[in-house]
Nucleic acid binder design. Structure first.
Lengths: 152, 152
DNA sequence: CTTATAATAAGAATTACTCTAAATATTGAC
DNA sequence: GTCAATATTTAGAGTAATTCTTATTATAAG
C-alpha cells in the first residue's frame, strides 16, 4: 500500500506522517475503547516491537495537537485517548472502569450554564458517571443466581 | 470555644473531629479559591506549624469522603478542593489558571445527555473553560495601551 | 485509667508522565 | 539520487503529585 504517498489527515495537517504515528493512530481507530498510553504501547508493540513508550506519548500528543484524537481524563487516573471526532461526551462506568461515548445536545447544555459577567467560554465538557449496560446485566444476573457472591 | 463538644457536620458524620481536620476545613471555607493540596499545606502551616503534608492529604480525603468538600480536576494538574456544597459547576480560566464556581441547570443538562439503553447515571459533571473577567479586562487594557507587550 | 481504635508524621515508594541527548529518519533543495 | 536542514525516535533519567508504610500519638468507649 502507498499510504505514505496518499496522505490522510495526519500529513495533510502539517504533521510528519511517520510509521509510528500512523501505527498509533490506527490502533486507536481499530478499538475504540479509550485506552491509556500504556495500553496503546502494549498494543503498538505487537505490530512494531521496537516502538518505545516515549514515542507512544509523542505520537499521542501529536495526534491530540492535530485534533485527530481527544484526551479523556477521569479523576487522576491515566489519561485515555479517543479518536471519535463526532460531537459526544463521555460516560464512565464506576464498576468496570470503561469509558463510552454518548450523545448530547451541546448547544442546549451550553445555554444552561450561567457565566458571570465578562466571562467567556471557549469549551464545555460533560462527564457522566454511572453503570454501563454490561455491568448492569452482570449485576442483576448475579443477584438472581447467587447473591452471596457479590458482597465483599 | 467548645467546638469539640458541640460537633458540627464533621464529627456528627462519624469522622473524628481532630484539630487538623477542623483546621484544614476552615482553611477551605475561608478562601474559596480552590487550592491544591500543597497550597492548603502552606496555609495550614501558618496556624499549625507541625502539620504534615500526609495529614493534609488525609484530612482532605476525609472531608471529601464525608461530602463536605468536592475535588476538582483540571486535566492532569494537581487536584483542587472546593467546599461549596451548593449546586454548581466549575469554570477554568485558561489564562490565569483560576477556578470559579458557576451556576448551571443540572436537571436541564442531564436531560440533554442521551444514554444508551440500560445505562444509568449516578453523577454528571460539567467543566467550562475560557477567559475569566479579570483576565479579559487585563487583556483588553493591555491591548489598548501597549499591544506589543502581550506577544511572547 | 485502660484498652481499642483511629489519626498523625516522616519519609520511602509509586504512577504517569516529561525531559534530555544521541541516533535515526524525513523533507526539500540541488 | 544526494545532501543539508529539520523533525522524530529511543532509552533512560528526572519530576510532580500523590500513596503507602510504620512508628508514634491522640481520641473515645468502658
Amino acid at each position: 500500500m502507498n499510504e505514505a504517498r496518499n496522505p490522510d489527515r495526519l500529513s495533510s495537517s502539517g504533521l510528519r506522517f511517520t510509521p509510528q504515528r500512523r501505527h498509533v493512530y490506527h490502533i486507536l481507530l481499530q478499538s475504540r475503547d479509550h485506552p491509556a498510553a500504556n495500553e496503546v504501547f502494549m498494543r503498538a508493540k505487537k505490530g512494531m516491537p521496537e516502538i518505545s513508550m516515549a514515542t507512544v506519548y509523542n505520537c499521542l500528543e501529536a495526534l491530540v495537537r492535530r485534533g485527530l484524537v481527544r484526551q479523556v481524563n477521569v479523576d487522576r487516573t491515566a489519561t485515555r485517548y479517543c479518536p471519535n471526532l463526532e460531537q459526544h461526551c463521555h460516560f464512565y462506568c464506576e464498576t468496570c472502569g470503561g469509558i463510552f461515548d454518548v450523545d448530547y445536545d451541546a448547544a442546549g447544555i451550553q445555554s444552561r450554564v450561567t457565566l458571570p459577567e465578562e466571562f467567556s467560554m471557549s469549551q464545555l465538557e460533560v462527564a457522566v458517571r454511572g453503570l454501563c449496560a454490561g455491568c448492569a446485566a452482570r449485576k442483576s444476573g448475579r443477584g438472581r443466581k447467587r447473591a452471596e457472591a457479590s458482597a465483599p
